[in-house]
Each structure stands twice: as structure tokens, then as C-alpha cells.
Design a protein around this nucleic acid. Structure first.
Length: 878
RNA sequence: AGGCGCGUAGCUCAGUUGGUUAGAGCGCAUCCCUCACACGGAUGAGGCCCGCGGUUCGAGUCCGCGCGCGCCUACCA
């Protein structure tokens, strides 16, 4: 029998159990068991290039609480670890950390090694694509180790033997299989079309990655000429796009412009002749009610242009600078070509913001058309608040640039995707509306191609036509058996490497897939869809997808899209949404605000159990304030578990020595029966809560009961359990203590896994089932043999009298051990009856002289059962 | 501008299908070293449950209208 330690030292205990769990391997998935015995988690793969954040600790703890409960319910847990390392965040981090940029035209340098640059070294080296990708691999591996360390420290019961990374061969293969399957099903296409484009990252982005940011803009009032005489006044915030103006439009019902429809306007400065047309999207209330359409100022321009049949005037390049357009030539015709070219020469090569300033000057100086007096710009520009689209990770506004991109058809399937959302259970339920609203509001197909490097390549080549250019209408797809492939180094079926880039040969698709194209496949990545049918059947659809609510429109949505397209199924039965951590000012915690606390510090200062406790108190979907006070409560709970267990085991040891192990069938004393009865309710409530993923309620129920157990029951039963001789009363007490503790440890094990397993190991660990985490969740059946209490309210009556006795001592500034000479308890008969069977325990706990007890019939005072009077003894006594 | 959520003690939050006197912890005050625990314990003081109307015998809870906060969509003329 192991000695029971005296003091709780959380660092030692937690270090010991982390290692023990690893040695036992108790968190591994058993591949041999059937699906119905298995609980499958679609673990969120963290973006490894992001920083470690308390938010991670928060939401991953939520998953682990549910997982640990399910494990104790007897489920075979599939809880792997994934890493999202591919994609733009990694590239950006690598660029900053190593001071490098990818230049895809450079040859591979096998000698080159990634080296971290000091903060002051701002030089930038260009490296080849392959060197760049290798550097990404090195950096992400370091980052993954930092995450793994944190996860292990926190006590997440992940299966570390089952890992994946979104850039690894397996994930590349699944991603490419997914792509080919969608090609086969006709759900993917490539097209050249104006796309939202980030000018810094120089890549297309998808609707889901775009956010609106408020910006202070300026309204410029510009005079346009009207062919045949007259003028128009047009208000615009983007005068720099004047050269790309293709039309002027007003609302068809707008009386002011009826006479102009069908005529032509002449743009100032550029002198271009553009039609004046009616368009529904023009709002007569805004500006002057008439506006210029440019290619492209906004999404509306794109939409309208697509149906207009008008020629494109591309003016912004992929780098965000104004192109040196061939002014004066069709389609850039002008009434004064020389003037137009001269003006545009001033603008070409400038970024949008600079060009805006410059053209405003040009328009203010002159910009006029023949026959005008005065400049084209009227008055001073007026400030206006506008919302501008940005790539969520970008620093400068998006532009619409025509490029060739791959898209997945989602606009055609809104109804089906909404129906899939209905089949999934969302926790909390109201989060489902976020999904439906997003699906209903979709206005673009899903753009999955990115003009980047560290990502999964498309398994695609193109025929090279007689002009030496790739023929994008004739893609060559890889064969499924050859995956994963990299078209830049691998050759398409039926070709040889020397045909690369040659007429009659092939050319690689240079783009890579967006990260979401891969992470939307996490269930299939884990189940080995298309690779191992047996494994897939055992893991798919999964049980839960835990995630944060801000990525419903991306991760949840895309995963639902893919599962539906590939197999017509939902990817999981439940989505579990965690909230955010807010700082004490109720703002979302973020690095830029400098209010981020590092998780490691917290774990060291308060213990992993304490930090888990804090996370567990937050209900699903609810944002939570970062509150160090709650860590302290968690730490106190751990300490309490430790100390209360010491007491129980000391009594248990004595009872075992005197007469063998007490069983629940020996619980006979009225107070103990009342305790067991309360425990039945606790077990039922905690189980019910956990079954609906409501870990917070399960914790609250168990924790409240545990504190009551310590503060009241232990005090009431203590002296009976101290009895020198073995007796039915003592055995009843010890049996009740032992079973209750066994139950509390299991109820609390998901929340504070370290201290509970430590305590469990002292006396409860059985051969073959060494850990509390692999024992079974408590059930009321365990105490089926224990009688129900004869009377209701016994426990509460005892607590009330004991509390009153303590109150009397406290107000008299006496120790709680001080003897009570006289105790008068007055109340209705039914309460006195409930109290009677436990009076002995109460009197002992309160150190009341049995001769001084008086029970009287009487009324209950407000909010109480009894009127209680306690008269303390004169002397402390021995 | 639409949608979703929230508003309860100084703070962080619970409050089942409406049902007597609205709960907990932290913090605060006062007291207590009692053989599980001073990394503790006891006791206590703190609430127009955001506002206004309505339904009801009865509303923190249901309905309507406001106000405030957060988030998600939309909004570059």
C-alpha cells in the first residue's frame, strides 16, 4: 500500500502523470473495434505558424473534456493530431523570420540553408521555389514542437501516434484525389475572370477570406461631357480608375437622366467616349445618382461588366500599380489621344493611393474637355466613410484583376448545402444560423487556386499549343494511382520530361491549392478516404467537429461542401463551437493589443488542472473573459480533492485493517443513505449534461456537490468515522465516504485529470485498469443495493442545524471546536422528524452536550426550517 | 441596414417546462490554527434581475417596443 503524500505539489504530480499516460499508451485508438464502439473527433489542425495563444488552450480543452467523458463511457477514441502548416501564413512567417522571398525563376541551390535573421537585419534574399518550400518545412517543424509541448503539458488526451500535416504526402494525396474526384463529377472548373486579388501576396483569394474594413475615403465630383452638348456631374471615390471607365449608368426610373440614356458621355482628362446606360444597381439617393462603371472598381462593376458585353479596360496590374495602358488605341480611344496619353503617363506605375492623389491634381489643374471653362474636378473632395474589402491577412485593399483560377461550384448547390447543415447538430444550436446565412449569402464560386508556393499543387498539366503557350482548355490530369504529384517536376501520363514547355508537349499548372482546399478534407484525411476503405468506414462520418465560431464560413462550410460532393454525406454528426477569450475590457484578445498572456506561463503558475478548470467553466459558444481569479478557484479545487482524499483513505485504511474492505451494501446509516441519494442525482445530472456536450453544467453539478461533501458531509460524519472500534456505524460511514470519493474522482476526472489520477492511484487503481481515465463513468446502478432514505430533507436539515451552531461560535469569536451547553431547535414536526435520525452526527460535529438539547414544535422562520438557539459552554473543556 | 446572441450582487457567471423569501464563486468585512486541508475553515454584508408596456392568480423566465454591448452578413459610385 503506497504512502499517501502530505502536501499537494502540482508540478511534481502533473509531470509524473504526463509521463505515465504516455508510457501506458491509454489514449490510442484501437483500429480493431467497430464504428459503433468508437468516438471520432475531427481535431482542428492549428495553423502552426500562428502564435500559441490562451484561446488555443481554451478550445482544445473543451474537446478534451468531451473526449475524456466518452472514453470513460467505454468508447474507443479516435482523437488524432493534425497540423495545418501549408499556406500563406507559413509563407509569410518564413519570409519574415528568414528574410527571404521566393523567386520561382531561380534554380534550386542544394547548398542553401535556412538561417534566422536578427531583428535589425532587414536584407532580403531571393531563393528558388524548392529552397523556399524546404525552408517552410524547417520552420513549421519547430512550430509544431512548440504546440506539441503545450498540448502535452495541458494534458490533452490526443493519440500522438496518429498525426498528419496538411503539407505531408498523405494530405497532398487526399487533396489531389479530392480535386480529381470533383473534376470527374464536373464540380470544378477553371476560367479567366476578374477575381479578388491581393496585390501584396499577389494571389487570388476566396470570398470567405475577405473582410470589410472601415476606411476614410474622399468623394470627388467630376464633370463628364455629353456627346452632342451638355455635362454630367459624377461623384466617385476612385478617380484613378477614370481611364478604365467603360460606361456611365443611372437608375432606369431616375427622371433626371431619362433624356441621356442611349447617348454617350465623354470622360474628362482621358476623353473617352462611353455609353450612358440604365442600370438597376444605381441608387438615385447616392451621390449624384449617376455613376461611372470602371473595370474594376468593385464587385458591382464586375457583375455589371459581365453582362454588358462591353470591352474590358484593365488598368490595375497584379502588383497593384497602374498599368501603362496603350492610350489612344482601341479600346482606349479618345477624342484627344495625345492629352490622354500624356495624362496617363503621369499615373502609370503608381500605386492606387498615389495615383488617386496625382489624378486629383491633374483633374483640378485641367482635365477639361474642349469647350469647357474651368477644371474637371468640382470643389473640394468630401470625406466619406466607406467599407473596403481586404484579404483578412492583408494590409492593402483588394483589387479585381482578371486572372485564370480554379473554382468549385457552390452557387449551384446552395439548397443542398443548406439541407446538409440541417442534418448536423450544432452546439449551441443557434450557431446553425451562421452557417445558413453564409450559404444564403454566397455570391461567388469557391476559388481554390492560389498564386503561391507552399501548398498542395494541382495535379494538372496543359497541352502546349502551336503558339508555344499552354492551352488552358485542354488540361491533362494526373492518374489517381500516381498521387501525390508535383507537376513542376513530375510528367503527365504519356509524356517525357524533355517535352516540358515544348510545342506539342506539356506545361505544368504553376498554382497551388488554397489551404482550405486541404483542411476541408480533415475528416477524409483522417479516415484515409480513397486509400483504405475499411478504415474510412470506421471513422466516417465522424462524431464531433470542434471549432471556433468565427470559422464556420470557412472550415465548417468547406468541409460540409466536400463531404457532400464526394459521398453525399455529412462529415460529422455534431459541431461543437467554442467561444473566444476576451480580455477584461471585453475586447477580443489579440496580439496587436499586447494583451496576450502566454499559455505556458499560465500552466506553470496555476497548474494544468487549474487552467483546464477555467476553460471548462465557459459554456459552448460563449465568449469568456480572461479572469485569473478563476484559475485560483481551479487550483483550490485540485488541492481540495487531494486533501479530502487523504482523509477518506486514512479512514478507509483503518476500516480495512479492522474488518476488510467496506462495500456499498454496508451503507445503512440515515445520513449516509441521504448522501448516496444526493449522489444519484448528481450522477444523473452530470451524465445528462455531458451527453449533450454541456461539460460546463457537468462540472458545476459535480463541483457543487463535492464542496458540499467536504464542507458539510465530512464534518458531520468525521467523528463517527473516527470511532476506535469497528462498528456498523463506522463501516457505513467509511463505505459511503469511499464510494462517494470514487464517484467524485470519476466525475471530475475529465476536468482535472492530473490530480484525480494521482489520488486514484493511491487506493482505487486496479490491476489492468490503472488510470481513472480508463475506468468507467459512474452510474446509479453501482448503488442499486443501497436503500433510499426513509425521509426527505434529512441531509438539508442536518446542514442547517450544523450551520447555525457554527454561526453561534463564529459570532462569539470562539473556535469551532468550542462546546455547546444548550441547543434549542424549534420547527414544524415534519422537519424535526427528518432531523431526528441524524441528530447524533449533528451533535457530535457541533460538540453539543446531548443533555442540553431541546426540540420544540414551532413555526419555520423566513427561509429556514428551524429557529435555532445555541448557548456556548463557559469553558473550552479538555 | 439585416440576422444571431447577450444585459442578474463591485467582478465572473448559474438560474430547468413561468411557481413561495433570486443562487454560486471571487472580492470585501469579522472571526477561527479543530487530529484531510492556513495552498485552509466559519459566519456575514452586498440585487428596481437594462427600461417601458402586455399576457397571467403569479414574470428574472413568455410576448411586443425601446436602450446598451458583442459577433456574423451587407455596404468601395
Amino acid at each position: 500500500m503506497a504512502d499517501i503524500p502530505k502536501k499537494y505539489k502540482h508540478h511534481d504530480v502533473e509531470d509524473k502523470w504526463r509521463q505515465q499516460w504516455e508510457d501506458w499508451g491509454i489514449y490510442r485508438w484501437d483500429e480493431s473495434l467497430p464504428r459503433e464502439d468508437t468516438f471520432v473527433v475531427d481535431t482542428p489542425p492549428p495553423t502552426v505558424s500562428g502564435s500559441l495563444h490562451v484561446g488555443h488552450v481554451f478550445s482544445y480543452t473543451h474537446q478534451d473534456l468531451i473526449v475524456r467523458y466518452q472514453r470513460m463511457k467505454g468508447k474507443n477514441i479516435a482523437y488524432p493530431m493534425g497540423w495545418d502548416d501549408n499556406g500563406l501564413p507559413t509563407e509569410r512567417r518564413v519570409q519574415n523570420l528568414l528574410g527571404i522571398r521566393c523567386n520561382p525563376h531561380l534554380p534550386y541551390d542544394p547548398e542553401w540553408k535556412p538561417i534566422r535573421k536578427g531583428k535589425k537585419d532587414t536584407s532580403i534574399d531571393e531563393v528558388s521555389r524548392r529552397n523556399f518550400i524546404e525552408a517552410c518545412g524547417v520552420v513549421t517543424e519547430e512550430d509544431e514542437q512548440a504546440f506539441e509541448h503545450l498540448w502535452r503539458h495541458l494534458g490533452l488526451s490526443l493519440d500522438w501516434t496518429d498525426q498528419y500535416a496538411t503539407i505531408d504526402d498523405h494530405c497532398r494525396k487526399i487533396s489531389q484525389l479530392s480535386f480529381l474526384d470533383l473534376v470527374e463529377k464536373g464540380e470544378v472548373y477553371n476560367v479567366e475572370s476578374p477575381t479578388m486579388w491581393d496585390i501584396d501576396f499577389k494571389t487570388a483569394v476566396a470570398q470567405a477570406e475577405v473582410e470589410d474594413r472601415p476606411r476614410q475615403g474622399l468623394f470627388f465630383d467630376l464633370r463628364f461631357g455629353v456627346e452632342g452638348g451638355g455635362e454630367l456631374l459624377i461623384a466617385t471615390t476612385r478617380p484613378e480608375l477614370l481611364g478604365a471607365c467603360i460606361a456611365v449608368v443611372a437608375h432606369p426610373d431616375d427622371e433626371r437622366y431619362q433624356s441621356l440614356f442611349g447617348k454617350f458621355a465623354i470622360t474628362p482628362l482621358y476623353g473617352a467616349r462611353v455609353p450612358i446606360l440604365a442600370a438597376e444597381h444605381a441608387d438615385p439617393e447616392k451621390g449624384t445618382g449617376i455613376l461611372m462603371v470602371c473595370t474594376f472598381g468593385d464587385a458591382m462593376d464586375v457583375e455589371w461588366w459581365k453582362h454588358s458585353g462591353l470591352a474590358l479596360k484593365q488598368i490595375i496590374g497584379r502588383d497593384g500599380k497602374l498599368l501603362p495602358a496603350a492610350m489612344g488605341e482601341a479600346p482606349f480611344e479618345s477624342v484627344d489621344a495625345d492629352k490622354a496619353r500624356k495624362a496617363h503617363d503621369e499615373l502609370a506605375g503608381l500605386y492606387v493611393s498615389k495615383a488617386k492623389k496625382r489624378i486629383a491634381e491633374l483633374l483640378a489643374e485641367d482635365g477639361s474637355l474642349p469647350g469647357w471653362d474651368g477644371p474637371a474636378l468640382v470643389g473640394e473632395p468630401l470625406p466619406t466613410d466607406q467599407m473596403v474589402k481586404y484579404y483578412e491577412k492583408g494590409d492593402r485593399a483588394l483589387e479585381f484583376v482578371p486572372t485564370r483560377q480554379w473554382f468549385i461550384r457552390i452557387l449551384d448547390h446552395k439548397d443542398e448545402l443548406l439541407a446538409q447543415g440541417e442534418k448536423i447538430q450544432w452546439h449551441p444550436d443557434h450557431m446553425k444560423s451562421r452557417y445558413s446565412h453564409w450559404v444564403e449569402g454566397l455570391n461567388q464560386d469557391w476559388c481554390i487556386s492560389r498564386q503561391r508556393y507552399f501548398g498542395v499543387p494541382f495535379p494538372v498539366w496543359y497541352d502546349v499549343g502551336t503558339d508555344g503557350e499552354p492551352d488552358f482548355s485542354r488540361p491533362i490530369y494526373a492518374e489517381a494511382a500516381s498521387l501525390p504529384v508535383d507537376p513542376l517536376t513530375d510528367t503527365p501520363p504519356g509524356y517525357t520530361e524533355d517535352q516540358r514547355g515544348r510545342v506539342g508537349g506539356f506545361a505544368a499548372e504553376p498554382d497551388v491549392m488554397d489551404t482550405w482546399a486541404t483542411s476541408s478534407m480533415t475528416p477524409q484525411i483522417q479516415s484515409h478516404w480513397g486509400v483504405d476503405d475499411e478504415r474510412h468506414a470506421k471513422l466516417f462520418p465522424m462524431d464531433i467537429r470542434p471549432q471556433a465560431h468565427d470559422i464556420i464560413r470557412t472550415w465548417a462550410f468547406y468541409t460540409i461542401v466536400k463531404a457532400w460532393m464526394h459521398s453525399g454525406e455529412i462529415p460529422w454528426y455534431h459541431v461543437i463551437l467554442s467561444g473566444w477569450i476576451l480580455d477584461p475590457d471585453r475586447k477580443k484578445m489579440s496580439k496587436s493589443k499586447g494583451n496576450v498572456v502566454t499559455p505556458d506561463d499560465l500552466l506553470v503558475e496555476y497548474s494544468s488542472d487549474a487552467v483546464r478548470y477555467w476553460a471548462a467553466r465557459a459554456r459552448l459558444g460563449t465568449d469568456t473573459a480572461f479572469d485569473p481569479g478563476v484559475f485560483k478557484i481551479g487550483k483550490r479545487l485540485s488541492t481540495k480533492i487531494f486533501n479530502a482524499s487523504r482523509f477518506v483513505f486514512m479512514q478507509l485504511d483503518r476500516a480495512v485493517d479492522d474488518g476488510g474492505m467496506p462495500g456499498v451494501d454496508q451503507i445503512t446509516d440515515p445520513l449516509d443513505l441521504a448522501l448516496v441519494d444526493r449522489m444519484r442525482t448528481v450522477i444523473e445530472q452530470a451524465t445528462k449534461a455531458f451527453d449533450s456536450f454541456d461539460y460546463a453544467t457537468a462540472l458545476q453539478v459535480a463541483e457543487d456537490a463535492f464542496w458540499s461533501f467536504c464542507d458539510h458531509y465530512l464534518e458531520l460524519v468525521k467523528l463517527r468515522s473516527y470511532a476506535e472500534e469497528d462498528s456498523p456505524g463506522r463501516r457505513s460511514a467509511v463505505a459511503a465516504l469511499s464510494w462517494s470519493l470514487r464517484t467524485f474522482l470519476r466525475l471530475l476526472a475529465p476536468f482535472v485529470p492530473f490530480v484525480t489520477d494521482e489520488v486514484w492511484s493511491w487506493r482505487f487503481a486496479a490491476d489492468g485498469r490503472p488510470s481513472v481515465h480508463t475506468t468507467s463513468w459512474p452510474t446509479v446502478d453501482e448503488v442499486a443495493a443501497v436503500d433510499a432514505p426513509e425521509l426527505d430533507g434529512t441531509y438539508d436539515a442536518a446542514v442547517e442545524v450544523l450551520t447555525a451552531i457554527r454561526g453561534a461560535k463564529t459570532t462569539s469569536q470562539k473556535s469551532l471546536r468550542w462546546p455547546v451547553a444548550r441547543l434549542v431547535v424549534a420547527g414544524p414536526e415534519r422537519y424535526l422528524k427528518a432531523l431526528e435520525p441524524v441528530l447524533d452526527d449533528v451533535l457530535r460535529a457541533g460538540n453539543v452536550d446531548a443533555g442540553g438539547l431541546q426540540l420544540e414544535d414551532g413555526e419555520s422562520p423566513e427561509g429556514h426550517r428551524f429557529a435555532i438557539e445555541a448557548e456556548l459552554a463557559e469553558e473550552m473543556g479538555e
